[in-house]
């Protein structure tokens, strides 16, 4: 009897928790960093459209608000295509740019590290999007990028896409354990 009561309480609690899974808020959740956020230099040389002068403001928070929100992760998936992230990273497998669905992270796998990579840009081709996309959208993209290698909760990761895609959906992939990237191969000593 007691076990049944406990079980039903648990079931109700789980069901209520699921209500938040796709919560949509129709205002900008993340305020743009004010004067308090330190300005960081841009690292990538490229910028979309007309370049902005000066550095970029990074976030004062270490984690975005969207890593538990399935709707926002899917918005990130749409923006990944809209802002041409897939132009270099493909659908996560990488082509000109590094793969995002594997376990190697050249510039860190944490939310704030990915946010910084998007906003500052990185050497050898990653454009700097700071000032060109809103912080809110950047955090959505960060959440989606982390879902690619299974860093988010299973119930939050996208289970389908809006476009034709041959690969397995994010939710079906094996979670990877992030590690620093392998050093690039060095030419053998003594070679001409």
């Amino acid at each position: 009897m007691r076990a049944a009561a406990l079980l039903s309480v648990l079931a109700v609690a789980t069901a209520l928790a699921a209500c938040e899974r796709e919560a949509r808020r129709f205002e900008t959740t993340v305020p743009s960093p004010g004067a308090s956020a330190p300005e960081s230099p841009r690292v990538g040389a490229l910028q979309p459209a007309t370049p902005q002068q000066g550095g970029v403001k990074l976030s004062t928070v270490s984690q975005g608000p969207y890593e538990g929100n399935a709707f926002a992760v899917n918005q990130g998936k749409r923006l990944f295509r809209w802002y041409n992230c897939n132009g270099c990273h493909a659908m996560g497998g990488g082509s000109i740019g590094p793969a995002l669905m594997d376990d190697q992270w050249k510039y860190g796998s944490s939310s704030s590290a990915i946010f910084a990579s998007i906003m500052q840009g990185r050497p050898e081709g990653m454009p700097s999007f700071g000032g060109h996309i809103t912080d809110d959208q950047a955090w959505q993209i960060v959440a989606y990028v982390r879902s690619m290698s299974g860093q988010l909760r299973k119930d939050v990761e996208p289970s389908r896409g809006d476009t034709l895609s041959g690969g397995e959906p994010e939710v079906a992939r094996k979670p990877e354990k992030p590690r620093p990237a392998d050093p690039p191969p060095q030419p053998p000593v003594g070679s001409r």
Binding site: P48, Q52, Y83, G131, H132, I133
Partner: peptide, 8 residues
């Protein structure tokens, strides 16, 4: 051209 408008 330098803000987010030109992205979309």
């Amino acid at each position: 051209l330098s803000q987010s408008c030109a992205m979309c």
